[in-house]
Computed example of a mutant assay.
Amino acid sequence: MALSIKTELCDLLGIKYPIIQAGMGPYCTVNLAAAVSNAGALGTVSIPGMTVGPEVATKKIREYIHTVKKNTKNNFAVNTPVGENVPEVMLKTTDAYVSTVIEERENDRELRKRMVLYITSAGNPVRYHKRIKDSGMLHFHVTPSAYHAKKMEKMGLDGVIASGYEAGGHTHRADRIVHTFVLIPSVTDAVKIPVVAAGGMCDAKTLVAALALGAQGIQMGTRFLVTKESDFHSNYKQFIVDAGEWSDMVGTGVYGPARCLRNKGAIEILKLETEGTLSEEELTKLKDEKLWASERDGDVVNGLIGAGQVASRIDSMLSVRDVIESIMHGATDIIKKLNGELR
């Protein structure tokens, strides 16, 4: 049994370990979320895409949250990107996700008890904050700067996930890059609400570093993606294990810059963006299809492989429980060693 490092985050979310699994939509994370929660951290249900339309969004997110509820007795979260500078169908799809999650929670006692956190990202959550808070859920938002973290605190959010430029998926604009090691202490100095560190988090060293920088815990995406229980295709996981330094690239995602691993599919999308031959809506739909092709079908040549720079540090595929417990054991060992060096 792993020794426990208990922070304010653990008490707030009702979890054993101060670790959150990142939302990774449009990828399915149903099995992963349940496994993470069962292992004592907080699993997160991801949305099945922003181009699916409100009817599909309602059906799929309802299915996802009830499947996770069935497969874990512990607490879990849900994530929805909330950017507004997108086509109308995506705004309606976002509204459908938020409304369905809140309605399902209101109508289900177990969801009210265990679906405790709504994580918003990739935009300003002001449009949804009151509805989320009135539903009884805690509300965290993913932020790229101390400036945005202070805005979230003023808005009344319960916590922020400070995500450095290293993170996979949506990341910082080129003129506003802040790396994790600079971002986390800046945010923890700027706000009083709990701060979760994200971007490059994957092991005991990064957990201890995050705690030392003032965070209450960490959020991991890529590390959890490469686990035995993860919903992702085995080809996708192996592609990350095989990745080394300089394997990643940043292109244009739905809400801005997004990090993925370099392959034929990513280079083709970059070319289409440069040529401008497709409309924004057509290009966004194509990106979703390429993301699904890699995760669901294992097409790591033509698909898009969303992942963080930390992919270069992941060289094994363990169970979720082994990942979490190795982090906690390793973190306590590091802290003990540091304590022993005090004179």
Results as ranks from 00 to 15, higher is better:
G43I: 14
E325Q: 02
V56Q: 05
F239S: 00
Y128T: 01
T277S: 13
R173M: 10
A33W: 05
K285E: 04
M220F: 14
D242P: 10
G214N: 01
T188V: 08
N74I: 04
A35V: 12
A215F: 05
S230E: 12
Y118D: 07
T7I: 10
P194A: 05
E273W: 02
L304E: 07
K205V: 01
A162L: 00
I327V: 12
D158W: 04
G256R: 06
I47C: 14
G168F: 13
P194D: 11
V254F: 06
L291D: 02
V254C: 03
M115K: 09
V86T: 01
S326I: 02
G214Q: 00
H139K: 02
G169K: 03
S316L: 02
Y17G: 05
I15M: 11
G25T: 03
E88K: 11
K133L: 12
R262M: 07
L213I: 00
I305E: 15
K205L: 06
R343V: 14
V142C: 08
A307L: 12
R114S: 12
I119R: 13
H233K: 09
I132E: 12
G253M: 00
F224I: 11
Q219M: 15
E289Q: 02
I19D: 07
D134V: 09
A77Y: 03
M90S: 10
S4K: 15
Q309T: 13
V116W: 01
C28E: 11
V178I: 15
Y27K: 04
F76N: 01
E245H: 08
T67P: 15
S247D: 06
V36L: 15
T120W: 04
V78N: 12
I327K: 12
N85Y: 12
G221I: 10
K154Q: 14
I19S: 05
L117G: 03
